[in-house]
Simulated assay, not measured.
Amino acid sequence: MSITAVIGGQWGDEGKGKIVDLLSKDSKIVARYQGGANAGHTVYHGDLKVVLHQIPSGIFRKGCHCILGNGMVVDPIGLMEEIEMVQSHGFDTTGQIHVAMNAHIVTPIHKAIDVATEAANNNRIGTTGRGIGPTYVDKYDRVGIRGVDLLDANCLREKLNAKLDSAIQTGQLPENAKDQLQDQFQKFMVCAEQVALLVSDTFALIHEYAERGENILIEGAQGTLLDVDHGTYPFVTSSSASSAGISTGLGLPTNKVDTIIGILKAYTTRVGTGPAPTELFDEDGQKLRDLGQEYGATTGRPRRCGWFDAVAAHYSARVNGLTEVALTKLDILDHFEEIKVCVAYKLDGKEIKNMSEVLHCLEDVKPIYKLFEGWQETTTGIGSYSDLPEKTQEYIQFIS
């Protein structure tokens, strides 16, 4: 019996959903601890392919409790749409989904502010426009709407109206926002009433299961290099996407976590703006994108592709305290004659091996590569490390 955390080791899109879905078959709880509908976890259940944004990836496992922890920002409209989508495939979610009482709630106001802010700044950060950042701002300004507020519809409506008045008065939204958001408000209130039935004491639930020695799986969203503290600030998400967020996002001390698995893609991808030292602008970059079908699960935006960044991976392993690594999409590299791995950065003539040293000026570094001869044979379907081509094994050994 154990508590296992699955963390994105790069800029997100590493394949966490698939790994969590695989591991969840033996878990009594799968819990998300940060982020919100800006996540996009692709899960396969038999021939069924589903993209989940808020519901933890254990939802297709009968009897598995799915916790949306207090570190998340929960969008009731999006959550109900997801629940209906899951149920449309024949799955009964009754009693499975639990929303933390102190999780903060994304409203139509937050989404409108998010879109308006990005437009005013020419999409500088490249957010998903789903209200994540503004909701976290309210959380830290101590004026947020929380899961517990959904339990009283009258109080919720008052807080919603007060929030809208404040947003208009401060110039975050135009005067006609009340008219523009009216339909969304009505939809929000209907969904909030339904999500209120899912609000519960998730702190007690996860600790009770931990004390009984049950298997618990903790699911990270986005990736370590998008962590608000340890990522490529300001081009980051608004939460703690590294393992450090587990304690604050679930109320579960990390000394109770037995295994921390870092998910790393065999090459590098990033969505949106911000530095990516190994990004390729040539045929190899396009080849990685096409073969890997690298388009965002949440936004559909094409991902920026590049060679594996071992400097970033080493930094991520340190930040998270990784005990294991799951390497994904290795088979995409089957088609390359030559493969490169970034082993250091160069800045002002100096060789840099610690990402933390240049995190503030990462856009100025140049990658230093080690070359590997491609194996150019298929690795798809191979179930044992010893059966992999020798050159593939050499690549894995080096980056691990």
Score class of each variant (00 low, 15 high):
Gln286Glu: 14
Gln286Phe: 07
Gln286Leu: 14
Lys287Ile: 07
Lys287Trp: 02
Lys287Asn: 08
Leu288Ile: 15
Leu288Gly: 11
Leu288Val: 12
Leu288Thr: 13
Arg289Thr: 10
Gly292Pro: 06
Gly292Ser: 11
Gly292Met: 08
Gly296Tyr: 07
Gly296Asp: 09
Gly296Cys: 13
Ala297Asp: 01
Thr299Phe: 11
Thr299Met: 14
Gly300Leu: 12
Gly300His: 09
Gly300Glu: 08
Arg301His: 09
Pro302Met: 10
Pro302Ile: 08
Arg304Ile: 09
Arg304Glu: 06
Arg304Asn: 05
Cys305Ser: 13
Cys305Asp: 11
Gly306Met: 14
Gly306Gln: 06
Gly306Arg: 02
Gly306Ile: 11
Trp307Pro: 11
Trp307Ser: 15
Phe308Arg: 10
Phe308Tyr: 13
Asp309Lys: 03
Asp309Asn: 05
Asp309Pro: 04
Ala310Glu: 07
Ala310Pro: 01
Val311Phe: 03
Ala312Pro: 04
Ala312Ser: 15
Ala312Gln: 11
Ala313His: 04
His314Gln: 15
His314Thr: 15
His314Asn: 15
Tyr315Trp: 03
Ser316Asn: 04
Ala317Met: 08
Arg318Asn: 13
Val319Asp: 06
Val319Glu: 03
Val319Gly: 07
Gly321Cys: 02
Gly321Arg: 00
Leu322Gly: 09
Leu322Pro: 01
Leu322Thr: 14
Val325Tyr: 13
Ala326Met: 06
Leu327Gln: 11
Leu327Pro: 08
Thr328Ala: 14
Lys329Ile: 10
Leu330Gly: 08
Ile332Trp: 08
Ile332Gln: 09
Ile332Pro: 04
Leu333Glu: 10
Leu333Pro: 07
Phe336Met: 12
Phe336Asn: 12
Glu337Arg: 11
Glu337Phe: 03
Glu338Gln: 15
Ile339Lys: 06
Ile339Cys: 12
Cys342His: 05
Cys342Met: 08
Val343Pro: 01
Val343Ser: 03
Ala344Phe: 00
Ala344Thr: 00
Ala344Ile: 04
Tyr345Lys: 00
Lys346Arg: 05
Lys346Ile: 09
Leu347Asn: 01
Leu347Pro: 02
Leu347Arg: 04
Asp348Met: 08
Gly349Met: 05
Gly349Ala: 02
Lys350Pro: 00
Lys350His: 01
Glu351Pro: 01
Glu351Asp: 02
Glu351His: 02
Glu351Ile: 13
Glu351Gly: 01
Glu351Lys: 07
Glu351Cys: 01
